[in-house]
Each structure stands twice: as C-alpha cells, then as structure tokens.
C-alpha cells in the first residue's frame, strides 16, 4: 500500500512540476551498503535538480518571493525590476 501511496504522490508532484524529489526504498537493517548507495544516489539526484523551488514559499507571510520560481512567472510578465524586489 505504501508503494501505491508513494507512487501516487510521485505522480502528483510530477504533474505539479516537483517531480523526482520523492523516493521510496525498502532497506533492512542488515543492508548498510544499500542504504549508503541509495542515499548517495538520491543526494546526487537532488543536487542535480537544484535547490528546492519551494524555498521562499514556506514563509508564513505575504512575502513577494523574489527569485523563487513562482515570482518568475509574474516577473516574466513584467520584465521591469520591481520596487518590492529591491526591498527584500
């Protein structure tokens, strides 16, 4: 069941443009090697994907999230720099 749920989430995140950032693996306590291997691979992959685009959105406030990915959509719309940008 866990696999299905995780699969579900993986697909949903993918649809939202956050694909590849969730991974599930079964590792028993005897499989130290595998653990190292998986963590390494996954770390490598995440590094490759770049920083979490959500960073900056997690603020519980009305930030204008400068530089964060979402700001870009609006920014592309108005290539001029914004006053609020300067202030943050």
């Amino acid at each position: 069941m866990t696999i299905k749920r995780i699969n579900f989430l993986q697909e949903l995140l993918e649809f939202m443009g956050l694909g590849g950032r969730l991974h599930l693996e079964w590792i028993s306590s005897a499989e130290a090697q595998k653990f190292v291997q998986v963590v390494k691979e996954f770390t490598e992959k995440i590094r490759h994907l770049g920083p979490n685009p959500l960073r900056g959105f997690t603020l519980n406030n009305l930030t204008l999230d400068v530089g964060a990915a979402a700001g870009t959509a609006a920014k592309t719309a108005c290539p001029e720099p914004k006053e609020t940008v300067a202030q943050n």
Binding site: G17, F57, A73
Partner: peptide, 11 residues
Amino acid sequence: AQQERFQRWMY
C-alpha cells in the same frame, strides 16, 4: 517542462 509547470501552478 517540470520547472515551467511548477511556475504555472504556483501562479
């Protein structure tokens, strides 16, 4: 592509 999708949804 992934990044654009994310931006679009976030918009």
